[in-house]
């Protein structure tokens, strides 16, 4: 029996000097090549760290991305970037604005994925942001309807996913954190995801967070991906209960560490979480990861959280006789 594969959602903390270098580059005080060199070093650090931790499916850590939507909109045709808007507290971001037809000039994530994969024999996930989230987290001055905007973005995300697959990606994750924004639009989330994943033979995942899932649990199961990645730890696994009455063939990536707290979960806490997941899903169906991207934590906190996670999985696998 196999199962309980460990993975991460996508982002890891950037070393402080990389953040500083990024700001320098934006001010024109540092060349793009020098920044890219630092990004590669940071990527290599995280690949090595994940290998040492014994994680099964790796991520590049998104060392070259600022924001998960802005990163793509800056590389796509048809987008410009707004002034700063606030998301909460003292957190601000620049919001993309669709001002023309959205199109893709070149592959956007391929180079970083290829580099990360070249460093390891373990599979590295391709990491994309989904069309619904890109459109929802942008202003729209061009398309006459939101749906048209989403469906056009879906085409370019599909092209990117195909490029990753051709390059050898076995796992492609298309994140839709905005999916739960409006329950009545879950159908649009699924419809646009169908465009993204059409013809892909890679294993597909989607990460969804923040929301009232009770209203949309059946729709969630209709999103055409192999694996739903949910933040479950920070809601004390109450989300899992929703799946109990809605048996699904889908796989689930179970979030077992809260990314919004400095506190490192105890081994027993994480094991209890995994056991809760195993009440509803088979070991083959269950992937184990953090709730969300770890980029808001420190490097030490991230590694400590992942270490507990891997140990918890290993102990449960030993108890259950999973190889």
């Amino acid at each position: 029996m196999s199962g309980l594969l460990t993975t991460s959602v996508g982002s890891f903390p950037k070393p402080p000097e990389l953040q500083a270098a990024r700001n320098k580059m934006l001010r024109g005080e540092l060349g793009r090549d020098e920044l890219e060199q630092m990004e590669r070093e940071a990527t290599a650090f995280w690949i090595k760290s994940q290998e040492e931790l014994g994680i099964d499916i790796l991520v590049d850590g998104e060392m070259d991305r600022g924001d998960m939507v802005t990163y793509f909109s800056e590389l796509l045709d048809g987008f410009t970037i707004s002034g700063l808007v606030r998301s909460y507290g003292n957190r601000y971001y620049r919001k993309p604005i669709a001002v023309g037809p959205i199109g893709r000039k070149n592959p956007m994530t391929l180079k970083t994925w290829e580099y990360a994969q070249s460093l390891t024999d373990k599979p590295v996930k391709g990491l994309l942001t989904g069309p619904y989230t890109i459109a929802e987290w942008s202003f729209n001055e061009y398309y006459s309807t939101f749906e048209e905007f989403v469906m056009e973005v879906a085409k370019v995300v599909h092209d990117e996913a195909m490029d990753l697959e051709r390059a050898g990606a076995k796992y492609i994750q298309i994140d839709e954190p905005a999916a739960s924004t409006r329950p009545e639009e879950m159908e649009l989330v699924a419809k646009s995801m169908a465009v993204v994943t059409k013809g892909l033979s890679a294993y597909t995942l989607t990460h969804i967070c923040y929301g009232d899932f009770e209203a949309v649990i059946d729709d969630l199961n209709s999103i055409p991906v192999d694996n739903l990645d949910m933040e479950t730890a920070n809601q004390d696994y109450s989300l899992l209960e929703l799946f109990r009455g809605h048996k699904s063939d889908k796989h689930l990536s179970l979030g077992v560490t809260d990314v919004h707290t400095h506190e490192i979960e105890s081994l027993e806490q994480v094991k209890a979480g995994i056991r809760k997941g195993l009440e509803i899903f088979t070991p083959e169906q269950l992937f184990i990861g953090p709730d969300c991207g770890l980029k808001t934590r420190t490097t030490d906190e991230s590694i400590a959280k992942l270490k507990v996670m891997v140990q918890a999985v290993n102990e449960i696998k030993a108890e259950m006789g999973i190889s």
Partner: peptide, 8 residues
Amino acid sequence: RYFDTNTY
């Protein structure tokens, strides 16, 4: 989340 916005 505050209603269906991207503010929290």
